[in-house]
């Protein structure tokens, strides 16, 4: 059995196991699994772009928000179907990501971070303002007959698609190009890689997936508020979970999401005032103690036991 077939099989088994979760539990734990699945999709797709390029994007919240918000306005103000709006949101977010990418990917790392953060905040402000001043008379309701289990399965499908996409990228010229860009961009250009296009395509894919996730999650809230879905906190959580797990392996972010979601959940329940402090400590822990994430730790351990 070749390595490729084996990893695909393992992936399929994992998806099947994950799909069974709603049959085992349907209350509190399902809702946690749902949150975790959402972050698995978001962090893994974030890492596909940011892992190799080291460009830290804080725009996840914006794309996610576009998903949630467009589904909400479309369904409550324009009577469109959920599916259509999900599709529209994904297209809009992908295009927006393309524009951001074209405009910014020649900027240096710091400026890219700040640009994405600023842009996400600006979109949040503008949407809130438009909503409050022009459309605000009625609230935004997302009424569907989806249960948590349905939402969970849809998210699982997106997460599986992200993994498949990542697996495919890893074996393609595009993925190899990305690796080279992350190493030395000048060399990348001089061996014939269209660096701008490569980065933009990958960045668009993160926009696409984040918008899908945002759209799918919308029915869970049923009442949508722009400030809720365009949450800057979400962007930070995505980054932190991905880095905690490790971004240089496809399955790295997964290892970060699961423990982090559990701890985050516990903290939100027991000591809600400490979430921000915890977020800060998590950032510091990653930078100072586990710069390559859990994957890095595991690999080091394995290396040591072999040697």
């Amino acid at each position: 059995m070749t390595g490729e077939v084996r990893s695909l099989l393992i992936g399929a088994v994992c998806v099947a196991l994950a799909a069974a979760v709603p049959y085992v539990t349907d209350g509190y734990w399902l809702s946690i699994a749902l949150t975790a699945m959402m972050y698995i999709a978001l962090s893994t797709s974030w890492a596909l772009f940011s892992g190799p390029t080291h460009y830290i994007s804080l725009a996840s919240g914006a794309f996610f928000g576009i998903g949630g918000y467009l589904v909400a306005t479309g369904m409550s103000d324009y009577n469109q179907s959920f599916w259509l709006m999900m599709f529209v949101a994904a297209v809009v977010a992908t295009l927006l990501a393309g524009l951001i990418g074209l405009a910014t990917l020649r900027l240096s790392g710091v400026y890219f971070v700040i640009f994405t953060l600023g842009l996400a905040e600006m979109i949040r402000n503008l949407v809130s303002w438009v909503q409050n001043n022009f459309l605000g008379s009625r609230g935004l309701y997302v009424l569907t007959d989806f249960t948590d289990a349905h939402i969970y399965w849809m998210l699982l499908a997106v997460a599986a698609a992200v993994f498949l996409f990542g697996w495919f990228i890893d074996r393609s010229r595009l993925g190899f190009a990305l690796k080279i860009i992350g190493n030395e961009e000048t060399v990348a250009r001089h061996v014939g890689i269209n660096t701008a296009w490569t980065k933009v395509v990958l960045f668009m894919s993160t926009g696409f997936f984040a918008a899908l996730v945002g759209a799918i999650i919308a029915p869970r809230y049923s009442y949508i508020e722009p400030n809720l879905v365009f949450s800057p906190e979400l962007s930070f959580l995505v980054v932190i979970m991905a880095l905690l797990g490790g971004t240089h392996r496809l399955w790295g972010p997964l290892l970060g999401v699961i423990p982090f979601t559990l701890i985050w959940e516990a903290i939100s329940i027991w000591v809600p005032n400490f979430t921000t402090l915890f977020l800060g400590l998590a950032f510091l822990t990653i930078v100072y103690f586990i710069p390559n994430g859990f994957v890095g730790l595991l690999e080091k351990l394995r290396h040591r036991s072999v040697a």
Binding site: H54, I56, S108, G109, V110, V113, F236, L243, N273, F274, T275, T276, L277, F278, L279, G280, L281, A282, F283, L284, I286, V287, Y288, P291
Partner: peptide
């Protein structure tokens, strides 16, 4: 750059938390 961004984000959240 990447490290200092992450570290100072961390500090910022810690300070806000406190």
């Amino acid at each position: 750059e990447v490290d200092s961004i992450l570290a100072t984000f961390g500090m910022s959240f810690v300070l806000v938390g406190i």
